[in-house]
């Protein structure tokens, strides 16, 4: 899986769970989803759970607190999958 695939997959997970169009996320990859997009903690956990199963990775509880934006999640997935 290359970076484009990883990003595309993450975009589809996030937009599907938040039930938003990708235009809502695009251009706002660095904004805090909780503050600016009003994502509640339950949906955040749903996103993390789906990221774990769809990329087959394990995200530790301590790591979750840092995953506040789309790009932070992307960064974490890239690191776990060893993609530059």
């Amino acid at each position: 899986m290359n970076l484009v695939d990883v990003k595309e997959k993450l975009m589809s997970i996030v937009t599907e769970i938040l039930e938003v169009d990708r235009s809502v996320i695009e251009g706002k990859e660095d904004v805090n989803l909780f503050k600016e997009l009003d994502v509640d903690s339950l949906l955040a956990l749903e996103i993390i759970a789906n990221v774990e199963t769809k990329y087959n990775i394990k995200i530790e509880d301590e790591e979750i607190e840092t995953l506040v934006s789309f790009n932070k999640m992307l960064e974490m997935v890239k690191n776990k999958l060893n993609i530059k």
Binding site: L42, L45, A49, I59, D61, I64
Partner: peptide, 9 residues
């Protein structure tokens, strides 16, 4: 089959 913090699946 999965736990993410207090979310259990």
């Amino acid at each position: 089959y999965q736990r993410v913090k207090n979310l259990y699946r």
